[in-house]
Design a protein around this nucleic acid. Structure first.
Lengths: 227, 227
DNA sequence: GTCTATATTCAGATAGAC
DNA sequence: GTCTATCTGAATATAGAC
């Protein structure tokens, strides 16, 4: 399919944004997906451009052409992940009952661990080694996001909807309990004696975490069943 | 202090186990400590023998003389950590009240995160990348250890001392909640807005986790205050 | 825009002097 | 037993043909 029709060429700057732009987008997406996989498995230092190129089924020089350096490619992967990361907290709002909001948050984070384990691992690896590439982001964006949610939790406490629990440490526990199923899945699989974590394993995990957290925070089920 | 007195030489095989043996032990310990630090910060792939040597304040060739290869040194570090790891579960026994046993376990794991964060990070990094060096250990020793503790939890449930909670997933949550304070401390420090986690931070963290877990499992305080 | 062939850098490992 | 100097292999990056 090398031939291209007229419609494709009607786009402005067709030479770089038309067909070629599509090839570019497709190649970049393939490289990013391959890079996420290799960085998740090997870490930043352990990953090689050759392995990423092989996973993307493209020549090595292609990666440098699109992303310049290994570090720039890594940053591009991290950026995708970070955008994804913050969205999950959206459901934590003062107008919701804490059982619905926190239960939904746990479900979302667990679904995340199941569907995007590689993203979680890349992020975990970055944190584990002191977050050299995203420290500013943590201190600004993540911190602000948590600061936004703390008053919501404290509002629920003031309304008597839950116990007096330190909101920030509650988040640390939530992140840890849910992300461990992606980051440290080898350990979980070894203890459970299974080759892979299936839907049922995640279902039990999700219900266990929700139960521990909701009951642990003294949150009763809401009257209306609107979740 | 090159000269050595007669007493030192009276030891059997003095040449390799006497003074020299002590130097050997001291050097090996220094190398292991330096290696733990560098492996924790950089991961296995990111760590270099040169950096470990610099941290140990010894020439690079010395490391190869004592441990042969980088991988052998890494395995020696992991072995030390693994021995330490299993001991913490010792307090989980059927003859204890779950509030005492699990509360004590959480305290022990939290103390661990505070005093040996580097060990925790080396272990976390190994798990994160699929545990290539310790997979057999996980499937045998760790799994057996958990299998030993599951009946203890289920005994407490049968006695009505706690809710019906999946014992294995309870362990996954406990490990995650406590180790996150060592492994992902950058994230926690960023959100809390502090440069280092001090005793007070760990105190709040410990009480929060104990509260969440004990209440989350429906565990009431025991009658006798023997902890 | 794409890719082969190569330059450069750097880390793991060791030979051999002390 | 210890360490300097060096070898060897591998990985990032790029020059230049197509």
């Amino acid at each position: 399919m090398i031939a291209l029709n007229k419609d494709d060429l009607t786009k402005k700057e067709a030479g770089s944004n038309g067909i070629a732009g599509r090839v570019r987008q497709a190649n970049q997406a393939r490289i990013l997906a391959a890079a996420e996989q290799v960085f998740a498995q090997r870490g930043f230092a352990g990953a090689t451009m050759a392995e990423i190129a092989a996973a993307a089924d493209l020549p090595k020089a292609n990666l440098h052409y699109y992303f310049g350096t290994k570090e720039a490619l890594y940053l591009a992967v991290l950026e995708d992940i970070l955008a994804l990361w913050l969205d999950a907290t959206d459901g934590i709002r003062a107008d919701r009952h804490p059982a619905v909001a926190l239960g939904g948050y746990i479900r979302a984070k667990m679904a995340h661990s199941r569907t995007r384990p590689l993203a979680s691992k890349v992020f975990a690896n970055e944190l584990l080694h002191g977050a050299p590439h995203i420290r500013p982001y943590l201190a600004l964006e993540l911190r602000r996001r948590v600061e936004d949610k703390v008053p919501v939790i404290e509002g629920w406490i003031a309304q008597g909807l839950m116990d007096r629990v330190d909101a920030k440490h509650l988040f640390f526990s939530l992140w840890a309990m849910t992300q461990t199923y992606a980051d440290f899945d080898v350990q979980i699989r070894a203890v459970l004696g299974v080759a892979t974590l299936d839907e049922k394993d995640f279902s039990i995990a999700t219900e266990t975490v929700i139960r521990l957290i909701l009951k642990g925070c003294g949150i009763a089920l809401p009257n209306t069943e609107d979740h």
